[in-house]
């Protein structure tokens, strides 16, 4: 009697502790990725799982800095880190892990690139007129509403401001940035030109004073507004616009942040954010070509599998799949 009772209690205790082991032990590959990679990575997840029975790929999305912070500041483990700005990996991960002499990582692999475009729908005002030649004049019309994501939260947000500032020089329209941006914020946005280039300084709160400009935390909210007719145009990554089947105007390579050839020109624009949202990285964002990159944290639970997944992503990216960030130009990767 006594031994039966003890046996029952032992079984109950093991079950309570979640140690029954009744389910098959699938291996989980944890991937933390930038928001603009979520749609292509969702496709990759399905394909990779189909070719790797027993592997569960779990993908979680954040802004690129938050992607890295999950591992460096919040102490979470991940197998693959994928960001929309290659410079963030050396800046934030080439340093020792807590309680270890090893760095979070010492390498990264660039996998693809992207460019900024002006996305729109057939509900957008003047959509029949807009072209690569006149887009900035269309956006400047008083009744046209323009959206971009919050520069505090999303690389696409500060990159949007860089594009508009670069467009001033490209089209010799010295009041373009003021007309499109500065005039629509009650707090001061300052633009100063110096030997190092142009610096845009933002206020702490990015809240427009009228309907001309709309800012949202992430792309998905902008795209939903665009589809509903709440804004006419959104500054977006080309792959995101393609993935959502939106119409878009491409911009000259000299301002679209998509070409390594123009890296020097992009570097002429700097955005200073209103406050350092993350203590581990400053408030300054410099103009650079958009390059997506991946790495495997040194403490990743499944590094071999992670390498396989990265290889798969790199190969698929190189094919130039629709809705995926574009392949890197030939010779861009050593």
């Amino acid at each position: 009697m006594r031994s039966v009772a003890i046996a029952i209690l032992l079984v109950v205790s093991i079950l309570l502790a979640g140690c029954s082991g009744s389910a098959p032990a699938n291996k989980t590959l944890k991937v933390i990725a930038a928001g603009s990679l979520l749609a292509p990575f969702a496709e990759a997840e399905q394909e990779f799982e189909a070719s790797h029975p027993g592997i569960d790929v779990q993908i979680e999305g954040h802004g690129s800095i938050q992607v890295i912070r999950q591992v460096t500041d919040l102490g979470r483990t991940a197998d693959v880190i994928a960001v929309a700005d290659e410079s963030l990996i050396p800046d934030l991960m080439y340093r020792p892990m807590k309680n270890s002499s090893r760095n979070y990582t010492d390498w990264y692999r660039p996998i693809s690139t992207n460019e900024m475009v002006i996305a729109y729908t057939n509900k957008s005002r003047y959509h029949e007129e807009i072209s690569q030649e006149n887009w900035y004049r269309i956006l400047a019309r008083p009744d046209v509403r323009l959206g971009f994501s919050n520069p505090m939260l999303d690389a696409a947000g500060y990159r949007s401001l860089m594009v508009l500032q670069l467009a001033e020089g490209e089209y010799r329209e010295p009041l373009l940035f003021e007309t499109l941006i500065t005039d629509h914020f009650p707090s001061t946005i300052t633009v100063s030109a110096g030997e190092e280039g142009t610096t845009i300084s933002l206020p702490e709160i990015m809240r427009p004073s009228d309907d001309k400009v709309v800012i949202r935390d992430g792309s998905i909210y902008l795209l939903s507004l665009l589809s509903a007719g709440g804004i006419d145009y959104a500054i977006e990554y080309r792959s995101v616009a393609e993935g959502m089947n939106l119409s878009y105007v491409t911009l000259p390579a000299s301002i679209n942040l998509g070409s390594a050839e123009y890296a020097e020109r992009y570097r002429n624009v700097t955005v200073i954010l209103g406050f350092p949202r993350f203590a581990t990285i400053g408030s300054e964002r410099n103009g650079l070509p958009v390059v997506y990159a991946v790495t495997i944290p040194a403490n990743a639970p499944n590094p071999d599998l992670a390498r396989e997944f990265i290889g798969y992503i790199a190969n698929e990216s190189a094919k130039g799949r629709p809705g995926w960030p574009a392949p890197l130009p030939e010779g861009a990767v050593s």
Binding site: I205, D217, Y221, F275, R277, F278, A279, T280
Partner: peptide, 25 residues
């Protein structure tokens, strides 16, 4: 290391974007 800033208007509950369950504004 995370920081966020609120202005006086937001402290009064104004200036936030709100959505329904379907993430419609």
């Amino acid at each position: 290391g995370y920081l966020w800033v609120f202005d006086a208007d937001q402290l009064e509950g104004r200036g936030f974007v709100t959505f329904d369950e379907n993430l419609k504004e």
